[in-house]
């Protein structure tokens, strides 16, 4: 393996690592939302610091590769994607923290979650995060497609739940504070799924050199 290939391998491993950490953060936030037990604040903070450090590390490695190796073709696409992916992952980490914080302010959490069918939605967000890491590692086209479909489902479910919560708040003023916080949590979950989709788009770009990030769902052609 050449020095350059070792650098690329190192970068790939760091992205896998930061991706796994984000997956843990998302799981923690989903658990905080769905269970009685509060998330371990210290652990979550620690993971956040690790993600931030790796995010900076990825930027440094990419900068060094650009300056010293002048990558082209698939190497260039990989490094361009690596920078974007680490950015997306860092945001996923931040959103997870925000969910954990917001969850604490939701009174009657379990009643609301059951009423608006949020548990399944949260599990889907967890799943899309796992699949996103998987697609980066395997570069599997069908997993990328699954992520796009899952994201669409999550978005629709979020819209429906938010609509129902707002309707509830209109008639029940006691539900306004918790309802508002829950809407924010739902928006964060939706954003996490969006970031996962963005990552899948970068993986697609890595493989096929085709930029699909602003294409509508139905226009996304996955056959290169």
């Amino acid at each position: 393996m050449t020095h350059f290939e070792m650098e690329l391998e190192k970068l790939k491993n760091i992205i896998i690592k930061i991706g796994k950490l984000a997956e843990i953060q998302v799981s923690e936030s989903v658990s905080a939302l769905l269970s009685e037990a509060a998330a371990e604040g210290k652990e979550v903070k620690k993971t956040e610091h690790k993600i931030d450090k790796l995010d900076v590390k990825i930027d440094e490695i990419c900068q060094s590769i650009f300056a010293l190796q002048q990558p082209v073709a698939s190497d260039l696409r990989f490094i361009m994607s690596a920078m974007q992916i680490s950015n997306e992952i860092e945001r996923i980490g931040d959103l997870s923290i925000s969910i954990i914080k917001k969850t604490k302010s939701i009174k009657d959490k379990h009643d609301l979650i059951a009423k608006f069918n949020i548990a399944e939605l949260a599990r889907q967000v967890e799943l899309v995060t796992t699949k996103t890491n998987e697609c980066f590692i395997t570069r599997d086209e069908s997993t990328i497609g699954e992520i796009f479909v899952l994201n669409k489902t999550i978005k629709n479910r979020c819209d429906e739940a938010i609509h129902d919560i707002i309707t509830e708040m209109k008639t029940n003023s006691k539900a306004v504070v918790s309802g508002t916080n829950l809407v924010i949590v739902l928006k964060h979950l939706e954003r996490i799924s969006e970031h996962c989709t963005n990552i899948a788009e970068y993986v697609h770009f890595m493989i096929h050199a085709k930029i699909i990030k602003h294409e509508k769902f139905d226009d996304k052609k996955l056959d290169s």
Partner: peptide
């Protein structure tokens, strides 16, 4: 230099 068609070129 971004997406060569042939593997040898890449």
């Amino acid at each position: 230099f971004t997406k060569p068609e042939k593997k040898q070129t890449e």
